[in-house]
Nucleic acid binder design. Structure first.
Lengths: 362, 362
DNA sequence: CCCACTTGTGACATCGATGTCATGACACCG
DNA sequence: CGGTGTCATGACATCGATGTCACAAGTGGG
C-alpha cells in the first residue's frame, strides 16, 4: 500500500505538501494540489491510521464491548436482542462525533473481557462502553482513569457512569394504562427475582395500584422461570391455572416479556380461553417480531434499548470531553406503551379517569 | 499513557530491552526481566498498537461490514437475525488466527459502505468480509487487490469469494423428510420471487418430488409477500384458503420462514383447523425464539448461519495467507432438518422408504 | 593462552504522517 | 528602493515499537 512519500515522488513535491493537501493545512498552489490529487488517485492512496494516530496521540476510536453477537444461540431469559438495539443506538449517538466504533464480542465468555479491554487500550481508544444483555449488576476489571467508561444496561458498585432502563416506571406506565382501560384484576407474571427486572417491575406495578388507590392481591403476583426448557411451560401453565381459579380471576395477564406472552397465548388457547375477549395479555419489551406478528397483536411496553444506546453514546462523549466526570447517578430511560388488540378496553378510551386516576375509585 | 521509554527509564534499562521482554525476542537477564516487569506493572503499561503496526506493517485486523446491528428495527422479510449469527460464526472462524475483528455497521444505509471500506483500509486491515442480511446479489465498490474480500450471504458478478446458504438443498431435505413421513400433498408458501431464497427453494421442492417420482401440483405452490403490514396477512389467508378448497387439499404447509409459520398458526386457528392433527406446518430457518416457543413446536430446517460465518472466516484466512485466490466458486452451506410436533408422521418413522425413497411410489 | 562463541545489553535507524521552523519568491507600503 | 508581510514549499524532528548492528563480558575447546 502506498504512502505519502510515494505520492510525493509521483507528484514531484515534498511529503509535507501532500500532507497539506490531505489535511487542508497550510496554503497549497492550485497546480500543485491538482498534481497531488491525481497522484493520490493513481496510486489508490489511503492514509495510514497507525502513523496518523501515533503523531496525533488520538485514535478517534471508541471501544464497545458486548456479548450481543455471540449469546443469541443459547435460550436465554431475554431471547430478544436488546443489546443489539443498544449497540445500534450507541452508533447513532456517536455518529455526530465522527468517532469510529470498534465492536468486540465477548463470545459469551465473561472471562474474555479483561483481554478485550487490553486490546482496546492498546488501540488507545478514547472511551469504552460495556453493554450487558439484560439489566444487571456487573463487575469489570479496573480501567485506567484517563479512559472514560460507560455501562449500558448494567451498573456496578463503583459508581461508574451507567445508562439503565427504567423498569419500575415502565411497568407502572403499562399497569396505569390497563387500569385506565377499566381493568382491576391484573396478574403480574414476573421474571425471576434474581434479575433486576424481576425485582423492579413489581414495584412499578405497586406504584400504579397505589396511585389509583386500588388494593393489591398478592395471589395475582408471581415470579415464573418460564424459559427453562423442561419445567418452564408447565410452571407457567400451573401458575396461570391457579390464578384463573381464584374467586375474582384476573382479566389481564401481564407477562415478564413478549416471549413469555407468546407462550401464554399458546397456553390460553389450549385452555380454551379466547384472547382478548375472555382474558387479556400484555407483554414487555415490544419485541416486534413477536408483538406485531401475533394474533391478536400484543399490547406491550417498549423497553427503549435504542434510546438507551444513544444516551450511553452521548454520555461517553461528554466524559471524553472532560465534562460530567463527577456525576455518578445512572441515566434512566423509559419508552411508550403500545396498545394493541390483545387487551380489551373495558371502558371507552377517553374517559376522564385516564387523566385523574383517582376518579377510578368510585 | 506510558511508553516503553517510560518503562525503560523506571527500570534503568534501554527501550530495546523492554521490547525484548515484551516480545521474548533476544535473551534478557533474570534480574533485568523482573525489574522491567515490575516497572510495566507499576506504570500500567499497555503496548501501543499504532506504533507496533507501523513498524510491523501488519495490523492483525479483519474488517467486517454488516447491517446486522442497525436493520433490526424495520419489519423486514427476515425479521430473524441471520446476519448476526453469521457475524458470530465469523468471529469463531477467525478466533484461532488471533486476528482482531473490527465490526462496522452500515446503519442500514448502503451508501455508507464505500466510506466504511476506506476507514478499514486506513486501518490497514488484512482482509474484509461483507455480510448481507439475506441471500442476495450485491455490488460493492472495488477493493484493492492486496486486500482479500469474502462475501457472506451474498454474491456479486465479479466472482468474488462468497459463502452462501444452500437454499435449494435445504428445501429439498425438508420436503424429502415430509415425503418420508408419508405426506404427498405438500403446499409451498414461498418468499417473494425477487429474493434468491424465493427462487431457489421451489427448485429444491421440485428436486425432492422428482427424486420420489411424485407429480407436482402447481396449485400447491405460491409466492406470498406475507410481511406487508396491510395486505400481507390477508394475502396469506386467501392463499391458504384457496389451497384448502382444492379437491385434494394439502396435508402440510411449508412456509417461507418461521415467522410466516407463526402467522400461519394464527390463521389456521382462526379457520378452526388444528395443528398438527388436521394440517401440518413446517418453517424455514430454525429461528429458535419462534420455532421452540410455538405450540406445537415448529418443524423447520436450519439455515446454518453460524456455520456460514465460520466458513467465511476460514475462507478469508486462506486468502490472507495467499492460498485459493483463484477459486471463484461459492461455498454452499446446509443444515439439519429439525423435526418437531407441528407435522404428524403419517407412517412410522423407521420405514425403509426413508432410506430408499423410490419405495414410496407404491 | 588465544580464538570462536554465546549471553546480555544498548545505539541507532525505521515505519508514515504531521508539527515546527526555515527559506525563497513576490507584493505592497511608505 | 528597502522593509515588512504573505504565499508556497521543503527540511527535519517526532510519535512508540522494533529490526539491525555493535559491543562488552564471560565460556569453553584446542
Amino acid at each position: 500500500m502506498s504512502t505519502i512519500y510515494d505520492v510525493a515522488r509521483l507528484a514531484g513535491v515534498s511529503p509535507k505538501t501532500v500532507s497539506r493537501v490531505l489535511n487542508a493545512d497550510g496554503p497549497v498552489g492550485e497546480k500543485t494540489r491538482e498534481a497531488v490529487e491525481r497522484a493520490m488517485r493513481d496510486l489508490g492512496y489511503v492514509r495510514s491510521n497507525a502513523a496518523r494516530m501515533m503523531r496525533a496521540q488520538k485514535s478517534g476510536i471508541i471501544g464497545l464491548i458486548t456479548g450481543a453477537i455471540s449469546t443469541k444461540n443459547q435460550p436465554s431469559t431475554q431471547q430478544g436482542l436488546p443489546d443489539l438495539h443498544i449497540v445500534q443506538g450507541i452508533q447513532r449517538g456517536l455518529e455526530p462525533s465522527g468517532m469510529t466504533v470498534m465492536i468486540a464480542d465477548t463470545g459469551g465468555r465473561q472471562d474474555k473481557v479483561p483481554h478485550l479491554i487490553d486490546t482496546f487500550l492498546s488501540h488507545r481508544v478514547e472511551g469504552l462502553i460495556y453493554v450487558a444483555e439484560y439489566h444487571q449488576a456487573v463487575s469489570l476489571p479496573p480501567v485506567p482513569e484517563d479512559t472514560p467508561l460507560v455501562l449500558a444496561n448494567c451498573f456496578d458498585d463503583r459508581g461508574t457512569a451507567a445508562v439503565l432502563p427504567d423498569d419500575r416506571r415502565l411497568q407502572a406506565d403499562l399497569v396505569r394504562r390497563l387500569i385506565g382501560a377499566g381493568h382491576r384484576r391484573i396478574a403480574l407474571l414476573s421474571l425471576r427475582a434474581d434479575m433486576a427486572a424481576g425485582r423492579l417491575r413489581p414495584l412499578g406495578y405497586r406504584d400504579a395500584f397505589a396511585e389509583a388507590g386500588l388494593p393489591i392481591d398478592a395471589r395475582l403476583m408471581a415470579h415464573v422461570d418460564f424459559d427453562q426448557p423442561e419445567t418452564g411451560p408447565q410452571l407457567l401453565w400451573d401458575t396461570i391455572d391457579r390464578m384463573l381459579r381464584i374467586d375474582a380471576p384476573p382479566t389481564v395477564l401481564c407477562c415478564g416479556n413478549d416471549q413469555m406472552a407468546l407462550m401464554v397465548y399458546g397456553i390460553l388457547r389450549s385452555m380454551g380461553r379466547k384472547v382478548p375477549d375472555e382474558i387479556g395479555v400484555a407483554g414487555f419489551d415490544n419485541y416486534r417480531a413477536i408483538a406485531e406478528t401475533l394474533y391478536p397483536p400484543l399490547t406491550t411496553v417498549e423497553l427503549p434499548y435504542n434510546a438507551m444506546g444513544v444516551r450511553a453514546g452521548e454520555r461517553l462523549l461528554q466524559l471524553v470531553s472532560g465534562e460530567g466526570r463527577e456525576d455518578r447517578s445512572p441515566t434512566l430511560v423509559a419508552g411508550p406503551v403500545h396498545w394493541r388488540g390483545s387487551v380489551t378496553e373495558l371502558r371507552p378510551k377517553n374517559v376522564v379517569s385516564l387523566k385523574t386516576p383517582r376518579e377510578d375509585l368510585q
